[in-house]
Design a protein around this nucleic acid. Structure first.
Lengths: 204, 204
DNA sequence: AATAATACTATTCAAATGAATAGTATCACC
DNA sequence: GGTGATACTATTCATTTGAATAGTATTATT
């Protein structure tokens, strides 16, 4: 990324500000008007320069298609549905507008944006030994291959519970990470709903 | 939010898909073409219905200004700069495109998007007692009022260190949350760079 | 001193796009 | 049996918008 001139930086900032305030990118004419250019060509030149420097991309002949590439990268953020508890099966993706969601940057977390990613809010301190606290949001992926030591959400008594997946003498089993509950549950006949890939904690 | 008809849901999904794939919202004509409508009016009607049901907003006479309100809410995501360590003072916000960033959903975390929000990647296990592990990203806010018990980033020996802020006999001091390092440092003359507001942990 | 990049004015054209009007057909609902 | 919502066809108009051409002045850079 080459350095920008101060004017080019101003244009870049205006594009960013417009996107933030208006929700859409500015048109060339709007850029020209904002800076008081009496000719659109000035705006065209600046945008062309920004494109040449790899700062923005746009699609020819499409209105308001300017995008900042730095921001483009961050737009790997995905809304992850937050479930209190997952009943059997997965709710289908329809009509979930009202659902609580958590925005997670997939690239930043080294995740592929999968439709099978979801979040659970932790209840209870059964995973305190893995430094997972009540209230934490655990982000899980459904269908990922489970390896021993992974934290998984399993369906026990029709409720999702977090456990560590282990191999005990070759047999898969689940363990709660709290010495007060030293349960060791055989993993057979249990539904593994997801493997933990990340965690988000709010403070206060 | 009223329920959508199946056709309206399809239109909503198309808008969402176009935004994801093309980076811009579709025009009314593009909606019509996608569904094979021979008249634009059909697309206009559907978008008007979606607007009436609060699913979508758009700005009159502005091309490609359609926005899904559910997604509009998630766009409170903010790129938070990740510092390994913060030297004295704050780097100014310019020309930081190459910087490592973490996308965080401010609304979902109950935060106001402040320019003074940043992240630190934790090194060492000095905060293990607060269930903060090495490798975790701690999100902090600069200038927030510190309360006893808060985790703060403080500048010690020209390097940012996480400590718990406490009052010891009325005197402010900092404590490492690891029994192996039972340091208690008077907080006077120390620069508190930020107060922890959230934590993000990647697994594996 | 020559050259290229930057930063603009001024004007025109054509395509893209939103908006409007006048209808038709279907279906649920009261 | 009427009413309203839904889901469209067909056509036209006015704006918005990107793109192009022909220049000028200033500021680096070589």
């Amino acid at each position: 990324m080459k350095t920008l001139t101060s004017r080019q930086q101003e244009v870049r900032d205006f594009i960013q500000a417009t996107q933030a305030e208006q929700g859409v990118s500015p048109t060339l004419r709007e850029i020209a008007r904002h800076f008081g250019f009496r000719s659109m060509k000035a705006a065209v030149d600046h945008v062309r320069a920004l494109r040449g420097k790899g700062v923005v991309v746009w699609q020819p002949r499409r209105a308001r298609s300017l995008r900042l590439v730095a921001l483009g990268r961050r737009r790997t953020t995905v809304e992850v549905p937050v479930y209190g508890a997952i009943p059997a099966g997965f709710p289908d993706g329809r009509q979930q507008e009202n659902q609580e969601c958590l925005a997670v940057d997939m690239a930043g977390l080294g995740l592929r944006p999968t439709a099978r990613t979801f979040a659970l809010q932790v209840r209870g301190d059964s995973m305190i030994g893995k430094h997972i606290l009540p209230g934490d949001y655990v982000i899980l992926e459904h269908g990922k291959t489970v390896r021993p030591g992974d934290v998984v959400a399993a369906l026990i008594d029709n409720e999702s519970t977090l456990k560590t997946f282990l191999l005990d003498k070759g047999k898969p089993c689940l363990r709660a990470e709290n010495p007060r509950y030293p349960q060791l549950i055989p993993a057979r006949e249990l539904v593994i709903q997801g493997v933990m890939v990340a965690l988000v904690r709010k403070c206060q």
